[in-house]
């Protein structure tokens, strides 16, 4: 998915930059008498209309895929409590006491609906899940005082890594965790 977005970005950027280069060259070639574009207003309106339609399509296609709507009508078969703290992730099947946090190894089933119940015991962190190809597959913020519920089904077995994506202090980059999917 990420590489798809990268291609989309590259294509659009190359197109828009080409337009700028083309327009620049047309100005270099122009003589004193040349009057530029005609019917500007009509063209402008077409441009806006097309942009609007493209964005509207993009909008309606993507909004339903937002994480808040995923697996909405199911009850998860497993829940994993996650408490982030400088600079650890505590993960457990049972609730975690922020004053004496404990962790246990987590093992999930393939295609099993899990709910990560994520909070923090100090500053804001992120609970970001990386797959075996080291790509982000899902994430949610870990905010003190709040529980964020992230639901997900892992389609591939393997070891998944957790990294923190919200800057939380000088140990931010060493914060990590993992779990397995079988």
């Amino acid at each position: 998915m990420q590489s798809l977005l990268l291609y989309l970005f590259l294509i659009l950027t190359v197109v828009s930059t080409s337009v700028f280069i083309y327009v620049y060259r047309s100005s270099i070639k122009a003589g004193d008498k040349d009057g530029g574009l005609t019917n500007v207003l009509t063209k402008r309106m077409w441009f806006i209309l097309i942009l609007f339609v493209v964005l509207a399509i993009f909008f309606s296609a993507t909004v339903p895929k937002s994480p808040y709507f995923m697996f909405k009508d199911e009850i998860p078969s497993k829940s994993v409590n996650v408490t982030a703290g400088q600079y650890f992730f505590y993960m457990s099947y049972s609730a975690i006491n922020p004053d004496a946090p404990t962790s246990e190894p987590i093992e999930l089933g393939v295609n099993e609906l899990v709910e990560f119940r994520v909070t923090s015991r100090d500053v804001t962190h992120t609970f970001a899940v990386y797959d075996e190809n080291n790509q982000v597959v899902a994430q949610t913020q870990a905010m003190p005082g709040y529980v964020n519920n992230l639901r997900w089904k892992f389609e591939k077995p393997g070891t998944y890594k957790i990294f923190c994506l919200e800057y939380c202090g000088a140990g931010h980059h060493i914060m990590r965790g993992s779990f397995t999917v079988k």
Partner: peptide, 14 residues
Amino acid sequence: FSILVAVYGTKINW
């Protein structure tokens, strides 16, 4: 759009 229109096919002191 305005900037592009201002430049397109127009002689400019670059």
